[in-house]
Structure formats: C-alpha cells, structure tokens
Amino acid sequence: MNDMTLMDKTVDTQKIKIAAKDVNVYYGDTHAIKDVNVEIEDNTVTAFIGPSGCGKSTFLRCLNRMNDTISTCKVKGDILLDGEDIYDKRVDPVQLRAKVGMVFQKPNPFPKSIYDNVAYGPRIHGLAKNKAELDEIVEKSLRRGAIWDEVKDRLDAPGTGLSGGQQQRLCIARAVATEPEVLLMDEPCSALDPIATAQVEELIDELRSQYSVVIVTHSMQQAARVSQKTAFFHLGSLVEFGHTGTIFTNPEDPRTESYITGRIG
C-alpha cells in the first residue's frame, strides 16, 4: 500500500538521470542513429515517438547496452547515467542492466512459475538474504506491477499461462523486482488489447514516483496520456524534445507537426 501514498507526490525540478551526447549508432554500414542529444530526467516518464524505423527502439536499447548482443552494432558518442559513461570500458553491462531494466514489446515471461519469474532478477543479483525476504520482494513487485490480486493464489502456476495483459504486467513486475533506477519500455502495449493497455498505462504513471521511465510507443495518444516529456525521432535523428504538452500542442519543427497531424508516419 506504500505506493499509494507515493502517488500524490509530485516533483517539479528533476535531476538529470541519463544524458546522451552526440550518439551515433551503426548497423554494419547503416547509420541508424544520427547525433542524438537528449537528457532524461529522474521520476519522469519520457516518451520516444516517431514513425516505424525511425530509430527510437534502437536508441532505447542503447541505454542499457542491449545492442551489445548484436555483433554488427556499433555505438559512438557518450551516454551518461548519473554522470558515468555507460560505454566506458570498465562498465560491466550486467551491472548496468541491473540499474536500467527493460520491458519488451512482446510479453516474454520465462517458462517458469509466476513466483520464479519475479524472483529471477533478485536471485541473480543476490537481493534477498533468505526465502522470507525473497517472498517479500516478490509480493511487493507483483503489487507494484498491479497484478498481485490476480495471481496471489497461483504463484506456482506457469507464467506463460496468463493472458497477454497479465503477462506484460508480470514482465513489468519482474523488471521492478530487480530494483532498477531506470525502466525502459519498448512498445509495452503494442501486443495488448485496450483494457490491458489502460491497466499498463496506469501502472506506468504509478511507477514514475520511483523510477525514471522511458517508453517507446507507436501511439501518440499513449505518449500524450502517460509522459511528461516527449522526444520525436525521424529517420534516425532526434527532431524535437520537450514537454509533452508543448510537443503536442505547439511543435516547433514542421516535421513534428506533420507527424502529430498524421501527414507522415
């Protein structure tokens, strides 16, 4: 119930959580991201919007170095998390990803029980000293994922047996259980029906109180509903970045306006 009290708390001046400076990404010969500069604040939902193939997902995956798993992908420029370059040679991507969690487009629960799905992160990172603590983390995360009431009686059932929306909330709970500082979400609602989408969106808004949330979305309405800041990507470049309200009502760049009004995309 503690998260309920947090909800009302609003923070106005935010500290910069992630700062990207002149980021360029190449897939082999393809120049996927061009000179992107962006500052992502703490306790804020930042939305990345843009037509498909504009590089928003690629850029998102740079923020926790998930692109490392693709051998042809090269990242240039600096991405600072709390002032530390995450592409520094000394940085272990494993440690980074514990701080910067990720939720994917398609719900991807592991073929394990609901409990084991959530306990997976705390176990590998050694966040619980004993079973009781682990139980506590699992319960807290499932509550935070707004799915506790639906699954509390069947924690031993396989996670793959849940409905799509439940699976995605389970995946969010799983990401939350690792206690990250930043939560990256790659089109988390694209595989969900409208009701499940509404539940997840509500959840995202709650999560803002504790994390910096970055969400990639196809849907402009979704960006308008959940985010405080919005970045518009087009053809690999960051066209415009600002308060969500400003972007949607009074965009500076004609390309943003074209996209918002549905002329491109």
């Binding site: 926790n64 998930m66 798993t69 494993v94 440690q95 980074l96 990803r97 514990a98 701080k99 969690g101 990720m102 939720v103 994917f104 398609k106 991807n108 629960p109 592991f110 073929p111 997976y120 992160g121 590998i124 990172h125 995946c171 799983r174 990401a175 690792t178």
Partner: peptide
C-alpha cells in the same frame, strides 16, 4: 530470442541466461 532478451535485460549474464532460462 525474446526469452534471452528478457533475461539479459534484467542484468543476467549470458551463462545465467543459458543455465536458468
């Protein structure tokens, strides 16, 4: 691949991903 991404995204090492997922 989504299962591997899910595990790596939580900060698991490759071997943990292989062994546990």
């Amino acid at each position: 691949q989504a299962l591997r991404d899910g595990s790596l995204g939580l900060g698991a090492t490759k071997s943990e991903t292989v062994r546990q997922v």
